[in-house]
Amino acid sequence: MTAPPALPPLHLVVMGVSGSGKTTVARALAAELDLTFAEADDFHPPANIVKMTAGIPLTDEDRWPWLRALRDWMAEQGTRGESTVVTCSALKRSYRDLLRGAGGRVQFLDLEGSRELLAARMRGRSGHFMPAALLDSQLGALEPPTPDEQAWTYDVACPSAEIVAEVAARVRRELGSGK
């Protein structure tokens, strides 16, 4: 009897605008599934952080180097057979298409919520460079995933623990442990 073929690395990209709970969900999901975690904000060049801290929205030109760095990190992990959980706003389909180039299976988890809830969350957090004033620019740039992208969508009004439990069960059921 032969062993089943190994599953390709899985990269779970927890996406959404600022305030959607990407980091909370992604950290808990990585811990639950014992996967390598990365915060996309850590891949921004310093100039992007300066702009966002000043309340200046990023342009596509600002975002491409950041997205390529994140994709390359995911690909590097994948070549070692490591599956990952990463945060990334992934606002546009073109950004998600670039991230899909990491290889393996790239699955997007789209965290959605009302503008009011997102703004309240942003106002309530401290120590983050992204001001609440940039929420509208992110919502304006957002291209929600289309059905052909097969993203998994979750309402952030639900407790993050419920979202994590549902995603973890789905990953285990559909894909194996991912690692």
Rank of each mutant, 00 (worst) to 15 (best):
S20N: 11
D72M: 03
W73E: 09
T24F: 05
A102L: 11
T87S: 03
W73A: 08
G103H: 09
K22T: 10
M52H: 06
D34H: 13
A31P: 06
F108N: 00
R100C: 14
L109R: 04
V25S: 07
E39S: 04
L109Q: 04
T53V: 02
W66S: 01
E116R: 15
D60E: 12
A28R: 15
F108I: 04
F37Q: 12
D34R: 14
R115N: 14
E61C: 02
R105M: 07
E61P: 05
A26K: 08
A28D: 14
S20T: 15
G55Y: 08
A69K: 12
A47S: 14
T59L: 01
L91G: 02
T84P: 05
Q77M: 12
T36N: 09
A75V: 04
M52C: 11
R115V: 13
T23K: 04
F43T: 00
P57V: 06
G55R: 09
D34T: 12
R105Q: 10
E112A: 15
G55E: 09
L99V: 10
V25L: 12
G81P: 05
T79H: 07
Y95Q: 15
I56N: 11
D72V: 00
R96E: 14
T79I: 01
D34F: 05
R93P: 12
G21M: 09
S114F: 11
I49R: 13
E32M: 08
V85H: 03
P65H: 10
G103V: 09
L70C: 06
I56C: 10
Y95F: 15
A102F: 10
R27I: 09
L91H: 01
E112L: 11
R93H: 15
G103S: 08
D42W: 04
W66F: 00
W73M: 04
L29W: 07
S89Y: 00
E76C: 05
S114G: 15
L33W: 11
I49W: 04
